[in-house]
Design a protein around this nucleic acid. Structure first.
Lengths: 201, 201, 201, 201
DNA sequence: AATGAATGAGCCTTCATTCAT
DNA sequence: CATGAATGAAGGCTCATTCAT
């Protein structure tokens, strides 16, 4: 019976992985439960055995995605990283999940709140490391200093903006691969200069 | 004769305005032609007398929106404005159309290309003034200078990010009203410091 | 006021002619009242001023068509015509109205009964001449003779069949022009031989 | 598993049969997918589970019809049949499917090309046997002989004409049953006499 | 547990007809 | 009278979800 359980778990996992791929390829809105079933080689009904509701599929997928990317980011975000290192790691991590992440950002407004939660989780992770890096790198946080949450939001915003307009900045390719370096350089320059002027410590 | 034409135009306008409102309230994806008809106090069929296709409603609405906001921005963007003035005017303009603009940004990926066109148009307008302001304010554009397109995209990205996450930053209210000042201050500080260090001219 | 009346009549006539053309071109089923209005350069409402119902347009059109073709056939069907002459005149007459006549035959089942009436009327006309011609040409009508109504129906059937399958027998062209001669020759031969054997008088 | 498949097939078949009946009764144009669903005791959606498109229902129905009638004709068309036998068998076969066949002929011009294909198929079948029968019965095909395709088209045309005007020739009844004998006698006489005179062999 | 056939609410769109101007 | 804007009843089709097998 353990075999049964294992098989079920395997089916569930397959559905999630297939859904994750389809969501990335066609977007959440244009991915039907029937398509997922077909791609996962299970019956349409099976989908609803594992996930009572379409929303549940989504939640499971996004959770799976969340864990994967969190793990990956954890690995990438080394201790004692510089600000640039943090951003670079973040980019590297996102690039590995770009299609899905991109859809997530683009269609966020139409998705259950869990989508937001996962994004927040990912960002907390990076944000935390960024905070440490900034503290290390730029001594104190005096009054004139830039608030970390804005620095971070500015960075996230930039990435999301480029992802949302990927067909404008890198049609048919990975925006993050194409523009990541430029964004990184730009944003680091911006931050660094601001800080160095504010806190030459 | 003129009366009829005027009334028709009025109906058409009413449909567009109603649609603009509904789009802003419920989003594009969740606004049906039947709802628009109901809200506009016309029969469902009337909608298709004025707009052959659902897409056409959208296009007309977005064009109407585009003209309105362009006009408004044109008025707000004074000559000889400082960088801060440009950003402030931009914010002020957007605040007046926030619900619709917010949906436009959030659901962009699911909308016809005309949505992007309008956004680009709006941004070109602001971008142009920003370019001039930067040039005036920060002398030259030497190698170490920040590329304007990045400065601008960074700003747009920030605003869009806050709009997309308005329920996080200002639940039930206007994000731009709530966070606009902070964003403005932050971004100006960032830009100014970077420039002043780079080009103390 | 006679001018008014005349103008009205003229409009009515224009609508009918336009409808006749459109019916011939696109078929009855696929010709909308709006199209007719547009093609006739009148408002959509005007159509219903002259014709209370779509059906009434059709009836008027078919009556107009009926008179025209009846007149024409009357002219073509000379006295003392041979059987072949009658058939030839019939063909010649139909060719002049082929598009409309063809649609009439093809879509007859979906049209008001008036369509049938007109077809019957046309056919009575030809049938009458055919009867006379046969009597003249083949002496008596003894028991072994072919019944005229069958001879005639056979001929009509043949023509209608070729009209209904015009895209098979003469794609993009006039079937009657292309195949008329062959049909004529064949049918005359058939009739003649049958009669000459039956009644060598 | 087999049960499900069988039930599905049964539903599909029921839909097809119901549609076939409705098409025969009310015509293709006036039979809606909702009506078919109702008559087949399935939900409207079920129709589209089995047939993606209204056209697909039609095609399936006409294919089903095609096979049935082809099989029946094959059975009826004996070897060594006389010309009269072939015509009689043809009539007998058609009578069994008269309502549907009649609609098919009447509304052909508004139907997908598959309608024509099926008609052609049926006719090829009969035409082939007719050709053989004629050859057997009337020795040679000299120059004066009647071309088979015209003989056949004449026959088909006659039947179609009577079907199309069934309410004229046999209101509320089967035209083929009512007039079939007469048509058969007439056409055989016509053919026979023509041939016997041409080729008295 | 898995299957997959069936469901039905909901959406966009068409078009003959009406009626205020 | 003529106009043409407005009407509303249908119709085809989609898709998440249910349930008998």
């Amino acid at each position: 019976m353990a075999i049964r359980k294992q098989q079920k778990e395997e089916t569930r996992t397959r559905i999630i992985n297939v859904a994750l791929t389809l969501y990335g390829e066609n977007g959440f809105v244009h991915t039907t439960t029937a398509e997922i079933a077909r791609a996962a080689n299970v019956s349409h009904g099976t989908i609803f055995v594992h996930f009572p509701t379409q929303k549940d599929i989504f939640i499971s997928v996004i959770n799976a995605f969340g864990s994967q990317i969190a793990t990956r980011l954890h690995d990438l975000l080394a201790e004692n990283a510089s600000v640039r290192d943090v951003f670079a790691a973040h980019l590297k991590g996102l690039i590995e999940f770009e299609p899905f992440y991109s859809r997530l950002v683009s269609e966020q407004s139409l998705l259950p709140l869990e989508a937001r939660d996962t994004l927040v989780m990912i960002q907390s992770c990076v944000s935390f490391h960024l905070g440490q890096a900034i503290e290390r790198q730029f001594c104190a946080q005096d009054d004139r200093a830039l608030p970390i949450h804005l620095i971070f939001n500015g960075w996230i915003a930039l990435i999301h903006y480029y992802l949302a307009n990927h067909d404008l900045f890198a049609p048919g390719e990975s925006v993050l691969k194409n523009c990541g370096k430029e964004l990184l350089a730009y944003y680091c320059q911006l931050i660094t200069k601001s800080f160095s002027q504010a806190n030459p410590c």
